[in-house]
Design a binder for these strands. Structure first.
Lengths: 228, 228
DNA sequence: CTAATCATTTAGGCTAGCCTAAAATAGTGA
DNA sequence: TCACTATTTTAGGCTAGCCTAAATGATTAG
């Protein structure tokens, strides 16, 4: 009696694992460690191992996983991860544009809703919004087929010398930071003058807005591109 | 060591039980049997008993439950049930009005979403919709404080003699029926001529629409009021 | 090249919510 | 009233997803 029993996998939990692997793997889709996943998802490393084993041994596996060597998305896993990301960003856009949510609140609400909507819902809000390509944080929204244009931007933390840039995007995971940045008019598309000092960056957007002193630790959340 | 351990209750499941008790108890809030609940929720009677015991022994109980005598909502349970009902009906209205969903699809989608939205979301869509009092099926939407105006209508199945009526509301639980009714212009507010025969009702709405032969078994889904 | 450290996996447990089968209770007709 | 039937509850099991503690594997400093 071989142990090919069917294992049921809770979609919500799986989605969260896949999204985390997508995000942590970065654009080069590097393999991701259990610990990194555990930290991001707020669960114990042992729980991650457990789930990865399930994901890898499903009928059509969502991940490629070798013991002790981290995990990568399979093509199927990547497809699903991008689908969830598309849901997430469309919902964020929708909450912001149609329901007038403040920018710093859309992430948490979208996080909750993204698992429970069907294609039809997605289709309708995409249509209602005119099939947007960018969400209110400046992030690309994957197309229906999973294609997503490459980001032509760099994290603010990599800035070498003082200068002027355009804000490309801002991570949605830290609501407080998002609110602070908004209060200083630092939003996607804004022009930004950056002055570097040992422990912080000083940011100035537009003219009327006060300069913002940003700890280097927070500067990874903002991506910029050159003004031209 | 007393057994006063804290029991965690999954909100989604609880919500479904509370909604079912509210619906089956009717406007007089009669006590509801395990079997009726089991049937409506699609679970085994034993599962219902189990859950009712949990609901009744929670810190602030959602139901009043006596073995073998059915179950009623506690004030707290009623409050929550009406809150979920409000969510459900607001979401339905929203899907129909803003996202242009076909009427027969809004129920299932709302069913999925209603558990996962926060007050803030509810608030926004209520505002966006102009604080509607009636959903697209003709059902009252409970107010924020749980108050809901009494239905001044009767089930179509109670019609004694032929006559003309106004469609008050239509149950959203049978998508197929909803679609059929729509095709015959039988929607909330429509004028309806009803002809009774032993096994069916014949319904005619407006002038251009064909008469609909409706089995008595389906006639509980439609509520009517008198034309005046 | 070995020992210490760090990362990861295994083993064993827990809870929620469902199930089935068996036991108990309530209701009813003779 | 008593037995029969239908309803409801109890008892015992299962799975998913989490946990902790212990064991194992990988890596790195001396």
């Amino acid at each position: 009696m071989p142990s090919n029993r069917q294992v049921n996998i809770n979609t919500e939990s799986v989605d969260n694992y896949l999204k985390a692997i997508l995000a942590l793997g970065g654009p080069e889709e590097q393999s991701v460690s259990s610990t990194a996943l555990a930290q991001r998802l707020g669960v114990a490393p042992a729980s991650v191992t457990n789930m990865l084993q399930k994901l890898a041994s499903a009928r059509s596996p969502f991940v490629e996983y070798e013991k002790h060597r981290g995990v990568r998305l399979s093509p199927e896993g990547k497809r699903r991860a991008l689908e969830v990301l598309r849901h997430h960003r469309l919902i964020e856009t929708f909450l912001y544009e149609i329901l007038d949510f403040p920018i710093e609140e859309v992430h948490d609400e979208a996080e909750r809703l993204e698992h429970f909507i069907l294609e039809r819902f997605e289709e309708r809000i995409a249509a209602k919004l005119g099939h947007p390509k960018i969400d209110p944080h400046g992030h690309c929204i994957p197309a229906l087929d999973g294609r997503m244009s490459k980001q032509d931007s760099a994290p603010l933390i990599d800035v070498e010398k003082d200068g002027e840039f355009v804000v490309d995007s801002i991570s949605d995971r830290d609501a407080k930071l998002l609110k602070t940045l908004k209060a200083h008019s630092i939003t996607p598309g804004a022009h930004l003058r950056v002055t570097k000092s040992p422990h912080e960056l000083v940011l100035r957007a537009g003219k009327g807005s006060k300069p913002l002193h940003l700890a280097l630790s927070a500067a990874g959340a903002v991506r910029i591109r050159s003004t031209n």
